[in-house]
């Protein structure tokens, strides 16, 4: 393992910036992964997690799929985004979330737009030191300070950062980096202690045991779901800021002889999401809230045997009406009402 002084992190990021588009947490009104300005590493002091998850770097809120050109006939032109991104400071929950999104975009038909960005991207993780009160990652088998879903993992050990390679891509990155020193056994012991302390700070828990079996009987319990959905205002913020939500819409735009097809994030909280000209299976709000909870904790696990939630807590922190998924999951009725 390697290490680097916190005060030297900017030198390391600068090196990487020669080869990659480096993104790091910044706070310009909203905390998100932003193109690094070449000097600022003060986020090490204040950064807990971003508001906008790093999925944004791989599945942007809006992206052009192709240009539509018309001459004698139509011609479609794809401009591949081959940017080599390096995201610094990815939290373990968000790294896992990308691994979950990978599953959807790899299964069956491959989604070239997303997978191309993933192939060209490097994730540099940074272990948490002060999880939020709304975090519940440990209930989803995620350690707040450890990750196998990143390429390189950084951990805070006081004045220095401990650096561990995780993937081959990460190994290559570190091999080509200068200014790193070898970590000692004492450093590793310090990191271990810090990780354990962080793990204990995640106090919010949910019971994920047999979650599918507990959700299924309540599925047709309309009264329960109406109650759960009562205060939801269908604003969609929980979806847009969720690191594992990947649903999208495809739309064409045209003006003055120019046209293009775009992909945008979409959201199951919106009635229009499932609307067909003649009918809508999820017109009512409670059906949409039920879909949201069940997709993450029931349907996705039915298909892929993993829960599509990483306990990052954003949907709790950012909800304007304090809707809380952990509360929903802990108050599931024991049995379906007839």
């Amino acid at each position: 393992m390697k290490k680097i002084k916190k005060s030297d992190l900017n030198k390391l990021l600068s090196q990487w910036q020669q080869k990659y588009s480096v993104f790091a947490p910044s706070n310009h009104g909203v905390v998100k992964m932003t193109a690094w300005d070449g000097k600022d590493t003060t986020f090490l002091d204040w950064y807990r997690n971003t508001v906008v998850p790093p999925k944004n770097n791989f599945l942007p809120g809006m992206e052009k799929m192709f240009d539509i050109k018309k001459d004698a006939g139509y011609k479609l032109e794809v401009t591949a985004d081959d940017t080599k991104q390096l995201i610094f400071g990815v939290r373990p929950c968000d790294a896992r979330a990308l691994a979950l999104i990978d599953v959807n975009f790899k299964d069956g038909y491959e989604d070239t737009y997303y997978l191309n960005r993933r192939k060209n991207g490097l994730l540099v993780g940074l272990g948490c030191t002060s999880p939020c009160a709304s975090c519940f990652c440990t209930s989803l088998n995620i350690h707040p300070a450890e990750s196998q879903d990143v390429d390189v993992m950084f951990n805070d050990i006081g004045e220095e950062l401990l650096i561990a390679e995780v993937t081959d891509k990460g190994k290559e990155l570190l091999a080509a980096s200068s200014g790193l020193s070898d970590a000692t056994a004492a450093d590793e012991a310090k990191a271990k202690e810090a990780k354990e302390a962080t793990f204990k700070k995640v106090t919010r828990k949910i019971n994920t045991g047999e979650i599918k079996e507990r959700l299924m009987p309540s599925f047709e319990n309309e009264e329960y779901w109406k109650n759960v959905a009562a205060k939801c205002v269908s604003c969609g913020i929980c979806t847009f800021l969720c690191p594992t939500c990947y649903c999208f819409d495809i739309n064409d735009e045209q003006s003055k002889g120019e046209a293009a097809r775009f992909r945008n994030w979409d959201c199951c909280s919106f009635a229009v999401y499932t609307k067909m000209p003649m009918e809508n299976p999820r017109e009512e709000k409670w059906r949409r809230v039920r879909q949201k909870v069940n997709h993450k904790y029931n349907f996705f696990p039915m298909i892929y045997e993993q829960i599509a939630c990483t306990g990052c807590g954003r949907c709790i922190r950012q909800c304007p009406v304090n809707w809380d998924i952990t509360q929903v999951l802990s108050t599931l009725p024991e049995k379906a009402k007839a």
Binding site: C247, F248, D249, D266, Y273, T274, H295, F299
Partner: peptide, 24 residues
Amino acid sequence: LEKRMKCGIGKCGRCNIGDVFVCR
């Protein structure tokens, strides 16, 4: 069955009935 199927390949999310995607 008919649903609003945007991608046609089970990725965009909206055409599910439980764990089944109508398009896929």
